[in-house]
Design a protein around this nucleic acid. Structure first.
Lengths: 343, 343
DNA sequence: TTGAAAGCGCTAACAC
DNA sequence: GTGTTAGCGCTTTCAA
């Protein structure tokens, strides 16, 4: 592969000039400019990105940390991220942590700052201490889809009001007339779905019900998790008329469980989720859910990170800016309906 | 961030020695070894991957080209790829081509050889000429999931016998007693699903039916595509008792169309797909499909590419090795059954 | 407007 | 065993 030097030689100029031409820096005479361009063309020259990364002090690369890219939510997000990065001439490294903080730390230590200029963090179960260390090492970190806008994490983040999302979902069920509602909370209590559940509880209480006392199960954030949780809930509380799930995947699992139990959704059981992933539209019955602004969040996250990466690095860490995306909104589909009149 | 040099200074040795210690090359005295390790520890040193890439002449990175990571098949594949790479200390760059050869070429030209040591190609609609140019530039290319083992593409590849998969799927329907079967072929005729359709036609003919004459629709490789194609097929040929789709996504779309038409699957319409993606298990009814060895293919692809990347580069391009994964196998679930007796 | 030169952080011969 | 010396290909002052 031809190098800058070879191009320079061929054009009868120095490497510095070629560099200037290629990146539009510094003044270059139109004649030399042309000669350089021709040489580039003739040789099929492409800049060596690793060399450039070294010289510039930062790679054209961003890392996206996820627990598993196979979770149906992540690819939708990653797609937008990749597009946004591509537009700015950057590239995307996918880091699967397998939900293991150790793996996450290993990734951060290896590539942050040396192979990736910055880090985008989805729900990857990372230690905040590791993230802060990463920032100290000079690689900005942005948290994507932070759940509680009012309770900033001390790191730059894009926040989504998931508490509100929980409220909206619960409120929808209540409005339909449901009173005996079971809740499925993805990941552990202290986990990131707490805000969504808080919203549910609040909406229930606002309706004069004992929200915190409603049947609840904590389950892995998967269809299987939702399936198992629903089976249990229904076994223990056969009178439930609706299921509130903090995420779409468990909600989809709830619908499967209902189907396997011979329960008609929504006639005999209503199900509502949160997020509005692609699958929610495609399931039968289609899932009623609360849509969050995924695309906007992804774009904001990239924008924010890009800014930090390019910032004169002092200002970067100090800011810890919080961007809030548009409010979640209810999307009514076919998985919810008024409860059957008893009898 | 501390550099090799600083570590060396602190340990009272030269950079070369530190390098040797860190990568276990060359002989180093146990005492110095310890001192170096301590210095590394104390300073929190991590190698600068971009610098190393430059010096070694190749980055620790592999590019995976896909048309869109949001296609449910890719993340499953990418997950395995990432894991395999991680085990060998490499990193994964995701390149979405949006199905556009131009975008694909731009990616290849930019990163192949300079930011990624090699390229893994899924069905990303790339020009073969561009791929060959990439190889010439020194970046090995491996085609993942090549469809026709008997018809190698002239590039190293991992092949899956999709023709056989098509046969298996069709044969299953025929065995159940179906005779009026509609086919949905993902992507265009000349496209990569041709082998699967060939298998279908062959199986039909073997059963004494006019395979090539069976109702067929070409559709985008998506649920929507399958939905639309099924609606059309059923409108035109109300007597169809089964749908054969060359991929799971369109098959899932077919089931949705059936549901929306009030047709019971499998009682009134059987549906079979190919691939066995996660969703196939999770749909209701669960999809009968032909499983291909995705995991094995992903691992083989990484293995093959790694070999080529590390090869003394002359031998690399010449080989064009073809690895074949285990044969596809039928997975019977709930979306297929014997056709209803007429009347 | 262009050139010369120093260096980014690391590796790899080869010499001691 | 350990040090010396050259780069890898590019960017970026600073001079000319």
């Amino acid at each position: 592969m031809p190098t800058l030097n070879e191009v320079a030689r061929r054009a009868g100029v120095t490497p510095a000039t070629v560099s200037n031409v290629l990146r539009g820096r510094g003044r270059v005479g139109e004649a030399t400019r042309q000669r350089v361009l021709e040489a580039v063309q003739a040789l099929g020259y492409r800049p060596h990105l690793s060399a450039r990364a070294l010289a510039e002090g930062r790679p054209p690369t961003i890392a996206l940390m996820v627990s598993s890219i196979a979770n149906p939510f992540y690819p939708e997000f990653a797609l937008v991220v990749e597009n946004a990065l591509r537009r700015s001439g950057r590239f995307l490294i996918i880091c699967n942590t397998d939900g293991d903080p150790q793996t996450g730390r290993a990734y951060l230590e290896q590539i942050a700052g040396t192979l990736s200029a910055g880090v985008l963090v989805m729900n990857a179960n990372l230690d905040f201490a590791d993230l802060r260390a990463t920032v100290r090492r000079g690689a900005p970190v942005v948290l994507c889809m932070w759940e509680r806008p009012l309770d900033p994490p001390g790191l730059p983040c894009v926040a989504v009001d998931f508490r509100r999302a929980g409220e909206l979902a619960a409120h929808h069920l209540l409005t339909l007339g449901h009173r005996r509602i079971g809740a499925i909370v993805g990941s552990k209590v202290s986990g990131i779905h707490a805000a969504r559940y808080d919203g549910f509880v609040a909406a229930m209480q606002a309706a004069g019900l004992d929200g915190a006392g409603a049947p609840v199960r904590y389950a892995p954030d998967t269809t299987q998790g939702g399936y198992a949780a629903t089976s249990e809930l229904l076994a223990r509380h056969p009178d439930l008329t609706a299921i509130f799930a903090t995420n779409d995947l468990p909600a989809l699992g709830a619908m499967q469980a209902a189907a396997d139990l011979g329960l008609d959704v929504p006639r005999e059981l209503s199900v509502v989720g949160i997020t509005d992933i692609q699958l929610a539209r495609e399931s039968r019955p289609a899932l009623t859910t609360v849509a969050v602004a995924t695309t906007e969040a992804a774009e904001l996250a990239v924008e924010l990170l890009t800014e930090l990466v390019e910032a004169p690095d002092s200002a970067a860490g100090a800011t810890a800016r919080v961007c809030v995306v548009p409010a979640p909104r209810l999307v009514v589909r076919a998985s919810t309906a008024a409860p059957r009149t008893k009898g």
